[in-house]
Amino acid sequence: MEIIQVVNCTKDYHSDGQIVHALRGVHLSLHKGEFAAIAGPSGSGKTTLLNCIGGLDYSTQGNVYIEGTDISKLSPKELSRLRLFKIGFIFQAYNLIPVLTALENVEYILLLQGMGDSNRKRKAAEVLELVGLKDEMHRLPHELSGGQQQRVAIARAIVSSPAIVLADEPTANVDQKTGSALLDLMEHLNKEKQITFLFSTHDPMVMKRAHRLINIIDGMIVKDTLVKRKNK
């Protein structure tokens, strides 16, 4: 089943009176449970594509479908609801709410979804345990290391069991060892919970670990490769 479908997507920016073509007629389909990476140099359009898929940005032309819904026709409020219930986000860094503890950051999504107290706390604690932060769940973000903060962000992204997790260069601000551990964790979640992961990255380690590698240059997909991985 196609969980993401991008049809002839273009995105133009106006910068200093010039039109910048960030995406030029991109076509892309992703199926449930894929662990894919969009790779390319800086300015190639990978984050723009991720933003269009995540409903953070509207495409100039073309359509983006999430589980069959054309998100380019949704209002800002409807897009908020879509992101809340269907999509989990992981950003490069500093993406937690500083005044909330790790547990509350994870609970925040469930609260917005209207989940009851006991279920919400239990579920958030379970997910934090899953990402290895059982003992740090009552700490504020500034009391956690960069790697631990990214684990909280992963926990927040998957806590509501979204259809897709979009990760924008999730290993960019952590060391290689921590990056590798984060990828282990996301790969495990992909396998165990069948969550679709789509990364934007120029980290060779992420490209190496992705099951599908989509290369993008100058706003166009130039290569889309399925990689066979040995089961660990």
Partner: peptide
């Protein structure tokens, strides 16, 4: 930036 993240994860404008 924090408000942008909050909006990205599903907080509505209201």
């Amino acid at each position: 930036r924090e408000l942008g993240i909050m909006k990205a994860v599903g907080t509505t404008p209201g």
